[in-house]
Design a protein around this nucleic acid. Structure first.
Length: 205
DNA sequence: CCCTGATTCGC
DNA sequence: GCGAATCAGG
């Protein structure tokens, strides 16, 4: 595989989206995450800066470094300190605003997520204490106490993706325990997710 | 152990 | 330019 324009484009897009190198490699196929990372660096977009506010330049280039540890006390960065846009803009302002209702914090501490998933159709499995073996149910209850409570983004190919709680509220997370190889759920949840046809024969009436 | 990105260096 | 091997972490 070679880096065609299209593949590079995909790489750039996914990298900008914050996808990991391994995910990108998987998507592209035919390359490893190392290849992706290597390419990312060659493209000069190693610093994953999409819209981050903290601009920390790492412009250190201590040249000498002769064998032993150079005891140079560091050049002491000059730090120009660009300009403090504190509030001088309102230079000749004879009558400052009476009062500011609120300082207004630049960032809301709480995302204020509520209707993340409005009551929709595709509510996942959710065992309805229906026709599930008692032992399997017990196992699930037990396991859910130890669930890792992962968020959607934290799931990987080998974490249990069993949803727990109400998707419409904050009380929602994914099991996250190690999933059975090749299965989407951990052992306990596999037990309730995949039922033999024989075991679930009619109940609809 | 799973994963992440960073770097090196022979090709 | 490429990417496996390796490094350095979480």
């Amino acid at each position: 595989m070679s880096w065609t324009d299209e593949r590079v484009e995909t790489l750039k897009r996914m990298w900008a989206e914050g996808q990991s190198a391994s995910q990108i490699a998987k998507e592209l196929g035919g390359v490893t995450r190392n290849a992706v990372i290597g390419k990312v660096h060659r493209l000069g977009l190693s610093n994953r800066v999409g819209g981050n506010g903290s601009r920390d330049e790492i412009e250190e280039e201590v040249a000498p470094a002769t064998g032993t540890t150079a005891a140079s006390p560091a050049p002491a960065a000059p730090r120009p300190e660009p300009a403090r846009p504190a509030d001088p803009p309102r230079s000749a302002d004879p009558r400052p605003a009476p009062e500011r209702p609120a300082p207004v914090a630049p960032v809301a501490p709480v995302p204020l997520r509520k209707p993340l998933v409005t009551a929709g159709q595709p509510l996942p499995p959710q065992p309805s204490a229906n026709e599930i073996s008692p032992e399997a149910l017990a196992s699930v209850r037990e396991v859910e106490k130890r669930a890792r409570r992962l968020t959607l983004m934290e799931l990987t190919e080998r974490t249990c993706k069993w949803p727990i709680g109400d998707p419409a509220t904050e009380d929602f997370w994914f099991c996250g325990l190690p999933s059975s190889p090749g299965k989407p759920y951990c052992e306990a949840h596999v037990g309730v997710a995949f039922q033999p046809m024989s075991a679930r024969r009619d109940r609809r009436r």
